[in-house]
């Protein structure tokens, strides 16, 4: 498999001097689903914002499908990396669902029937056919999350990055989302605190702490390593059966 994402030596500090990313390396193969785990403040969201050039690195490089991120490739990288933000209300800003899903394709220069086809395609991928004329404000949390995903799928990205995709979802909404993500062919980087969700959806996980990758491996194995989890303020939910993990990692 070819690498769809290559991050090497990425460092970033906020203007106040606070260093968030420190010489971070990360690779993702095309079609791979990877969970990005780590405590609050580890730099997960900051990393995500670098992947399509919202933040620009102080040092290091990012390549998407072999294309180096710089001023000239920014538009192309933003098409290839679809960012789904944590609060769907930040992502859905147009008056109707159809216009929101069409916003990205319109910025890519598509119009008319071609754009409408993209919107229909993306809505059907998330099981939201017929949502087009509705106002994003009147959707439920789970529906908003799915439409937010559709807004980036409409740009036909190579890599989908989701920030806390399960936050605020009820158990049914969470299960619908995991089914949906597992059914997509796109490479996915899912930033989450929801360890069972990571286990369910992502065969591989990466733990980021203090701006660096501290562990990278099979999700079930990482989650079975209680010392590793404890060292980075990660915890499995109460009542979660660890033997379930050993069974999964052996399989």
């Amino acid at each position: 498999m070819t690498d769809i994402l290559e991050v090497s030596g990425l460092s970033f500090a906020y203007p106040n001097g606070h260093a968030v990313l420190d010489d971070l390396d990360l690779r993702l193969a095309s079609g791979e689903r990877v969970a990005l785990l780590g405590p609050n403040g580890a730099g997960k969201t900051t990393l995500a914002l670098h992947l399509n050039g919202i933040h620009r690195a102080d040092a290091g490089s990012i390549r998407v499908a072999g294309i180096e991120l710089d001023d000239d490739t920014l538009t192309e990288i933003r098409r290839r990396v679809g960012m789904v933000f944590q609060d769907a209300d930040d992502q859905l800003f147009m008056p109707t669902v159809a216009e929101d899903v069409g916003f990205g394709p319109a910025n890519l220069g598509l119009s008319g029937a071609e754009r409408d086809a993209r919107v229909a395609e993306a809505l059907s991928m998330v099981g939201a056919e017929g949502f087009g004329p509705r106002s994003p404000h009147h959707l439920s949390g789970g529906e908003k999350r799915r439409i937010a995903l559709a807004t980036v799928l409409a740009m036909r990205p190579d890599l989908v990055v989701m920030d806390e995709p399960t936050s605020g979802l009820d158990p049914a909404g969470r299960r619908e989302l995991s089914d949906l993500l597992a059914g997509l062919d796109h490479a996915q980087l899912l930033i989450t605190h929801d360890l069972p969700f990571a286990l369910e959806v992502c065969p591989r996980s990466v733990i980021v702490s203090q701006g660096r990758v501290v562990a990278d491996g099979v999700t079930a194995e990482l989650l079975a390593d209680t010392e590793l989890l404890a060292a980075h303020r990660l915890e499995l939910p109460f009542g979660f059966d660890p033997s379930f993990l050993t069974g999964r990692s052996a399989a």
């Binding site: 914002l49 919202i54 933003r78 098409r79 960012m83 916003f103 740009m155």
Partner: peptide, 9 residues
């Protein structure tokens, strides 16, 4: 930021 991420110029 969400607009920029989807190619807003």
């Amino acid at each position: 930021a969400a607009m920029l991420a989807r190619g807003f110029r």
